[in-house]
């Protein structure tokens, strides 16, 4: 069980929205984490630098938050096959679909893009079915 935390959710969401708005307003860019990470692997120094700065910030942010009683999870309850399979599916899927929860789910829906609304509906529905399967037998096999 996890506790229902609507206020923390809303505040956290507003900060994520603020970050996405900053990238758009300052640089015309979309805050899609899968795209930002994937695009770091290039020889273009300018691309590497801005993506690297954002990723460093993304790693530092939780460390700053931990000074205010918000912490990262310490109990990652996943088996190794789940880690490997999950990594493969998330990597292939976000690259093929050109976006993940942030790029399609936040920025895309926030632009009322039908492409992103469809992508988000599909990956949320499939994730819900997968979680149900994992909790009803599949989890013991992986």
């Amino acid at each position: 069980m996890t506790e229902f935390t609507p206020v923390a959710g809303l505040v956290g969401g507003l900060l994520i929205g603020l970050s996405a708005a900053m990238l758009l307003i300052f640089a015309g860019r979309i805050a899609g984490i899968s795209g930002i990470v994937n695009g770091m692997f290039t020889r273009d120094r300018k691309e590497i630098l801005w993506r690297g700065a954002f990723v460093v910030g993304l790693i530092i942010g939780p460390v700053i938050a931990s000074n205010f009683n918000y912490s990262l999870p310490t109990n990652i309850e996943m088996t190794w096959p789940q880690v490997i399979l999950g990594g493969i599916f998330v990597g292939l899927g976000t690259n093929l679909a050109n976006g993940c929860t942030s790029g399609h789910g936040v920025c895309g829906i926030g632009r009322f893009s039908s492409r992103s609304i469809i992508a988000t509906a599909i990956f949320m529905l499939v994730a819900m079915i997968t979680v149900w399967l994992m909790r009803n037998g599949l989890g013991e096999l992986l």
Partner: peptide, 10 residues
Amino acid sequence: IFGIGLTISQ
């Protein structure tokens, strides 16, 4: 800010 948002929201 993105990282703090993800942490606060859990």
